[in-house]
Design a protein around this nucleic acid. Structure first.
Lengths: 155, 155
DNA sequence: TTCGGGCTCATACTTTAGGGTGATTTTGGA
DNA sequence: TCCAAAATCACCCTAAAGTATGAGCCCGAA
């Protein structure tokens, strides 16, 4: 505990001790030079310069380390907010039902599963999907899904 | 040109002038206090403290402007940069080739087209895709693609 | 009311996808 | 060097997807 405190404030303590020593030195110099009493100006100048330098040194040492420039890229994951691109839907001429089918396709459902989900027959789904492919000018459901995502027609 | 130089170094010049003034003050104080010649210690201490503070102040002022923390909030809206989730790939145990196939699947290619793209036979692609489905625990390519996108395995 | 588009469903057929099995060759690492 | 995993390919069979065509129903606009 005590050693911990010592360690943490060791810089401050070091500076305090150094300052005390310097004050002693100053006193000694004063006593020494008091004899040569005509050296006032030099003495004063030396003191001034010395303590100025000391101040600068102290400030530089005790100042917090320079803040480093951190360019942090916070990439927001765009959240779950999906806004369907109605314009594209109309441009393609997709009907509501066709959009439903496309959506379920994108979730990886088979035609059979889609038909069950929508309470219609498998054949109906086939018809819808065929129309979707035709309107989107694609050949496969995977392509339709890919294009649908690119056009923001589906999440 | 000359005014430019003046402007650029105006701080330095200002400090120099201030320092000169202070030296004059010092001289004046010296002359004044020389009479009261028993005030040496106080005088010295004052000088020391004053110049220390001056030094600290100088250091703080002259120090390069603290590097400003540029908090760059670049929120990438779904940016075009895709970083593959290697962790998930390893978790699933997908091999390089399997990943290739999955990627091309996601682009909407048929097995035939994928085989042509990768210069292998259709059967090979079938084998790869079967392994992909098995490892991803899905039944169809559309599901594999959907899951792949969710896990950031594919763009 | 007529007409067209959307939705539904069906039948028949072709193509593609996927499952299962087995085999050979490459290759990266112990 | 030797092994395990990866990669390659083949065959057979079933399931699902996709194509083509036709038809009935409903609703809203002309």
């Amino acid at each position: 505990m005590a050693s911990n405190l010592l360690a943490k404030n060791k810089h401050t303590i070091l500076y305090a001790v150094a300052l005390a020593l310097l004050l002693f030195l100053l006193k000694w110099l004063e006593l020494k030079l008091i004899i040569v009493d005509n050296a006032y100006e030099i003495y004063m100048g030396a003191i001034a310069v010395f303590f100025t330098v000391l101040g600068i040194w102290l400030a530089l040492k005790l100042t917090k380390p320079k803040t480093v420039v951190v360019e942090k890229q916070v990439y927001v994951n765009n959240g779950p907010k999906f806004i369907i691109n109605q314009t594209e839907v109309e441009k393609l001429g997709l009907s509501k039902r066709e959009l439903d089918v496309l959506q379920l396709m994108a979730e990886g459902l088979s035609n059979q599963e889609i038909s069950e989900r929508l309470f219609v027959s498998l054949n109906t789904i086939k018809t819808h999907s065929a129309k979707v492919f035709e309107k989107m000018e694609v050949k496969r459901r995977t392509q339709a899904v890919e294009m649908g995502k690119r056009l923001s027609i589906i999440p």
